[in-house]
C-alpha cells in the first residue's frame, strides 16, 4: 500500500465518453475522450506530442496548426472527436529518425526562427503549400503563411526558409543566401 493511490472519480454525468481512433504521423492512435476535448489538447496532453504549441487559443495565431487529412487546421478550433478516422500530421511527423525534413532544414539554414514558438505551425502551413504547389513565388509563400503569426522574425527569413525548402524538395541545390554568414568560408 502506497501513501497515495488515485482512484477514478465516478460521475453522474450522462455524456458518454467516446472512443476515437486516428492516424497521427502515420501511426494509429486511439483514446477515450469527452466530446469537448479540443484536438490541440488531445495532441499535447493526451498523446504527449508537445511540438504542437497552443498560442492564443482564440483561432488567431496559427501556432497550433496541424495537418488534418493534409490540410492545415487550427487544432484549438477542432474538437478531437472530429478527428476520428482521419489523418493528423504534427511537427513530430516531419523529420525521420535519420534526417530533418527539408522544411526544417530550410528554417535552420535560413534562420527562419528566433524564439521558435510559431515554428511548428509555420512549418505545417508551409508543408501544405509545398505539397500543393512545389514551386511557389514569394507572394504565394507569404499568402499561404498569412494565417500564422510570428512576433520575432518579421517573416523575412521564414519566407526565405520556405523558398529554400521548395527548391531542395524539387531536387535543386538551394541558393544558400546565408552561406557567407559564417565569416571566413
Amino acid at each position: 500500500m502506497t501513501l497515495f493511490e488515485e482512484v477514478p472519480v465516478t460521475t453522474t454525468d450522462d455524456i458518454p465518453v467516446r472512443r476515437v481512433e486516428m492516424r497521427v504521423n502515420g501511426e494509429t492512435r486511439a483514446a477515450n475522450i469527452e466530446p469537448r476535448l479540443l484536438l490541440a489538447h488531445l495532441i499535447r496532453n493526451g498523446l504527449q506530442l508537445t511540438g504542437t504549441h497552443t498560442g492564443c487559443d482564440t483561432t488567431n495565431c496559427g501556432a497550433c496548426t496541424v495537418l488534418f487529412d493534409g490540410q492545415p487546421v487550427k487544432s484549438c478550433t477542432v474538437f478531437a472527436v472530429q478527428a476520428d478516422g482521419h489523418d493528423i500530421t504534427t511537427v513530430e511527423g516531419l523529420a525521420t529518425a535519420s534526417e530533418l525534413h527539408p522544411i526544417q532544414e530550410g528554417f535552420k539554414d535560413e534562420h527562419g526562427l528566433q524564439c521558435g514558438f510559431c515554428t511548428p505551425g509555420m512549418m505545417l502551413s508551409a508543408k501544405a503549400l509545398l505539397d500543393e504547389n512545389p514551386n511557389p513565388t514569394e507572394d504565394e509563400v507569404r499568402w499561404a503563411l498569412s494565417g500564422n503569426l510570428c512576433r520575432c522574425t518579421g517573416y523575412q527569413n521564414i519566407v526565405k526558409a520556405v523558398l529554400w525548402a521548395a527548391e531542395k524538395m524539387r531536387g535543386g541545390a538551394p541558393a544558400d543566401a546565408s552561406a557567407d554568414d559564417g565569416g571566413d568560408a
Binding site: V73, A144, L145, S146, G147, N148
Partner: peptide, 11 residues
C-alpha cells in the same frame, strides 16, 4: 481569398 485567413478557410 479575403475571408478570415488561409487556415480558417480550409475548415
Amino acid at each position: 481569398p479575403l475571408v478570415a485567413d488561409p487556415i480558417v478557410r480550409t475548415r
